[in-house]
């Protein structure tokens, strides 16, 4: 089994897991959502029956607030009723925080002159959307190599040849995903109940080191050929900053298991992408006439700078 076949197999394993993760939370939460964000200043709600236009266009009939603090009301600036009068779009003066939950209370909903009573709508992003945002953020928008400058040692070390770059990228992604989940579990079930939060650095790096050692030992027995291909990279992974930064970021922002996994996957794939791009350029650089004092690492740094500039184009990029 060569590296290319291995990469195909790894892709076949990772993709279904990821797709399942994207869809599964959406299925669970689909029943409760009755309103949705349209842009970051708009909320769409549907009433289920045609409502009176004069009632619907009065902003005083709506009360909108964040679920966490019900005391702070957000003023509605304008309302657009759909042609069939069954749904309305509320527009707000200020931008909403799309990662939190909002509640919309409609007072005395009237339909054909009859008062139907109060209706409440819960508006939030679905779990799948949040995960996808985290994934894209870690992979492209805040690429760990080009905008957070993590993992540079390995990035410059193994990006000389395309084949080693691909091998390293895949190994790293797998170790990253698994160790992100393991560190989350350790933090939630061991460190936090025992109030040992200050030990997280030691525990996380210990976990990663033990995990890498375990993979190394298992792979040596189970698949010696693959071990020969990837053995060196496995040991190098322990000194990669990203492998420690992702659990620390997860712990800081209080991410759950799915979020931790997605951040790990995004970081791993982003690193693999950066390695692959860089190795393509560096293979060509070998044949170019570079000034003698720029040979080797200095020109690689300048190339990385150009890449970082182009990755700046992703900033502010969002789908939902």
């Amino acid at each position: 089994m060569n590296v290319k076949q291995f990469s195909n197999v790894a892709l076949l394993i990772v993709l279904p897991i990821f797709l399942f993760l994207m869809i599964f939370p959406t299925l669970v939460h689909a029943a409760t959502g009755s309103g949705s964000f349209k842009k970051d200043t708009e909320i769409q709600i549907s009433f289920g029956a045609p409502v009176d236009e004069t009632w619907a266009n009065d902003p005083a009939n709506y009360r909108v607030f964040q679920k966490t603090d019900p005391d702070i009301e957000i003023p509605v600036t304008s309302i657009t009723l759909s042609p069939r009068k069954t749904s309305a779009v509320l527009t707000f003066g200020e931008a909403l925080n799309l990662s939190s939950e909002y509640e919309v209370q409609a007072k005395n909903v009237t339909s054909d002159g009859k008062v139907l009573g109060n209706v409440e709508f819960l508006v939030k992003k679905s779990e799948g959307q949040i995960l996808f945002t985290i994934f894209l953020g870690a992979m492209l928008i805040n690429n760990f190599v080009f905008t957070k400058y993590l993992g540079l040692c390995i990035f410059f070390g193994v990006s000389q040849k395309k084949e080693t770059a691909i091998g390293m990228g895949i190994t790293f992604t797998i170790v990253m995903v698994l160790s992100a989940v393991m560190c989350w579990a350790l933090l939630t079930f061991v460190l936090q109940p025992l109030h040992l939060g200050f030990l997280q650095i030691i525990v996380f790096i210990g976990t990663v080191a033990i995990f890498v050692q375990a993979v190394d030992t298992i792979l040596r027995k189970v698949n010696p050929y693959l071990f020969k291909k990837l053995g060196v990279f496995l040991v190098l992974i322990v000194t990669n900053c990203i492998i420690l930064a992702v659990p620390l970021i997860n712990a800081d922002s209080g991410n759950g298991p799915f979020e931790s996994l997605t951040l790990g996957l995004g970081a791993g794939l982003g690193f693999a992408l950066a390695l692959f791009l860089m190795s393509c350029v560096r293979e060509k650089l070998e044949l170019c006439r570079v000034p003698a004092m720029f040979k080797g690492l200095p020109i690689a740094f300048v190339v990385a700078g150009v890449f970082a500039l182009s990755f700046l184009g992703f900033s502010g990029f969002s789908i939902f």
Partner: peptide, 16 residues
């Protein structure tokens, strides 16, 4: 972000 890479690349070249 890009500036850091450029500066290090040039200082390395000067050291060389």
């Amino acid at each position: 972000p890009a500036g850091g890479f450029f500066v290090i690349g040039f200082i390395m070249a000067i050291f060389n």
